[in-house]
Design a protein around this nucleic acid. Structure first.
Lengths: 264, 264
DNA sequence: CGACACCTTGAAGAGGTTCAAGAAATGTGG
DNA sequence: CCACATTTCTTGAACCTCTTCAAGGTGTCG
């Protein structure tokens, strides 16, 4: 599958339990048609003609499995491909020489990682699987080649990059102007919204990352994240059992993020 | 001119005092050849063949002047073009309904703004001129059209977008993990480095933005920015006279940002 | 089952914010 | 060109949020 399009209102089921080992044993099965992929509606440009669709399928060179805790790519590595996440969950993070570390994003099925590598031909961050994952490897030279011939693909690539820029603007707003409670509330709402668009519950979610990773992403210490969770629980807004979160009062969360707009 | 390439070590002179009013009086003069532009080395893909260069020049539809304090575009406006800054200085910022406001970047000559608008076909932030400015208007459909035919241009567009993503990663690191002094030091070093690449001094700069705008960008209150400037002055690292800043001890600034790496 | 990673909670402290007042620069209109 | 209004900047003091340090609890995986 390729590329995330605008989040659609209709959920797209993503079966996390599908058996994928067969493709690992049988090399010919590794190459899978995007047209059959259950993530197609998230990844593909829409309204493609049959022949264009066929051509785009050629982009996916192979699939690759990444074990939990393992990097898909690392800072400094040669850039060659973008990766569309088929299953699993990633974090991307940058580290400085003096030991600072910043999680720059969490990515889930249907999203694309690797865009950071284009500018310098080398990756500038680490992408680490937070659970066993599978990605479609899409060589970037192939993407550029086909983009010249399939207009819809070209525009799609531009949109994906623009979307990432806009997403990061949102993170800058969060980091630059929100307090701890607001940050965590915004984070939960964002996660659950993206999961919902993939066919999961609107009110329940399983965090794939530690408190420390959440904290890094939100510019907070892990203790602050933990305390803020506890406060939300006290206020009856969520239930938290380790990494299992149930949102009891979504309006309460929205209220925290944006008091003005909410009337409840 | 088009697009910022990698910052090169050789400075490119940018004459801010050039007389541009003539082009305003004479419509035919508005269309200016990129090949003559003194920012070419910052903006154009390098190593172009003569005919390709000619074609790329067609992208710039018109130039547009923006008065200080005036928007180039605003959140919600229809997206149609990218803008290459010819002269002047911009800020981009996003505002929320509840009055929050976040400066997401400061842009100077040779840099491109408007990338945020691609994904939804509408701009998602405001671009405000911080001093009288002139931009080259580059209709995005023209860019996409030509990108299909000129490979160097296609890759250049991708690199510009990737560069913006990487830049924002850096801002996230700053906002997420640095203290006030580190943020301001990193900010000054970044500004002076970009100015130096444009032929300006390595040690002197004029801030085009207010303390409040700096603060917004850095996730600090204007008072904190002011106090931190004062502390730098006390420590003999910089001289500050309103918006005029002279860096007396650049290693001191680097030391503040990254104590580990510096040996001085 | 035991070791290890992860999470929670408390108490003290630091860094940044808020509120307030005044000074310096900038712009405006007479 | 000067006087006045406005914006911008600086500095102080009190306050608040988040961090730091510490200890103990919980869950997970070999």
């Amino acid at each position: 599958m390729l590329f995330l399009t605008q989040i659609k209102s209709r959920p797209v089921k993503n079966d996390h339990n599908q058996v994928l080992d067969a493709s690992f044993m049988n090399p010919t099965a590794i190459k899978v048609a995007c047209s059959n992929c259950n993530l197609r509606e998230l990844c593909m440009p829409m309204g493609l003609s049959e022949p264009d669709l066929k051509r785009i399928e050629e982009i996916v060179a192979v699939r690759r499995k990444i074990k939990r805790g393992t990097p898909l790519f690392r800072n400094g590595e040669k850039f060659s491909s973008l990766y569309a996440i088929r299953t699993g969950f990633f974090k991307t993070c940058i580290a400085t020489e003096d030991g600072r570390d910043q999680v720059t994003g969490f990515q889930m099925a249907g999203e694309v990682i690797g865009l950071d590598g284009i500018v310098s031909d080398h990756h500038t961050c680490d992408a680490i699987a937070l659970e066993d994952a599978e990605v479609c490897v899409m060589p970037f030279d192939k993407i550029e080649l086909l983009s010249r011939e399939v207009n819809a693909l070209q525009h799609h690539v531009h949109k994906i990059m623009s979307r990432e820029i806009v997403r990061e603007h949102g993170v800058m707003l969060l980091l630059g102007s929100m307090r701890a409670e607001e940050r965590l509330a915004a984070f939960l709402l964002n996660l659950v919204q993206r999961l919902h668009a993939r066919g999961f519950s609107q009110s329940e979610l399983v965090l794939r990352m530690t408190r420390e990773e959440i904290g890094s992403y939100l510019g907070l210490k892990l203790e602050t994240v933990s305390r803020t969770f506890s406060k939300f629980v006290e206020d009856g807004i969520v239930e938290v059992k380790q990494r299992h979160v149930r949102i009891l009062n979504p309006d309460g969360l929205k209220m925290i993020v944006n008091p003005q707009t909410c009337h409840s």
